[in-house]
């Protein structure tokens, strides 16, 4: 799960939580140039892809 508010996702029992940006733009940053924003979003998604292949024993936070 990619979440802007990771504490609540972890508290709710989500096994893999990726640290998103903020509620208004969970998976990006409109303050960046379009190219940088895309790279930033890609980094978050790639972190999520890696996380889903990672064995966890409980709710775990992944930093992009």
């Amino acid at each position: 799960m990619i979440s802007a508010l990771h504490a609540i996702a972890l508290n709710g029992g989500a096994p893999r939580v990726i640290h998103g940006a903020r509620i208004e733009h969970v998976c990006g940053n409109p303050g960046l140039t379009p190219e940088m924003d895309q790279a930033h979003a890609r980094q978050i998604v790639l972190t999520a892809c890696a996380a889903i292949q990672t064995a966890v024993t409980g709710p775990t936070l992944f930093e992009p």
């Binding site: 802007a4 508010l5 504490a7 640290h19 940006a21 903020r22 509620i23």
Partner: peptide, 8 residues
């Protein structure tokens, strides 16, 4: 607040 860091 709309980001985890701000809430923390």
């Amino acid at each position: 607040w709309t980001a985890q860091e701000e809430k923390d």
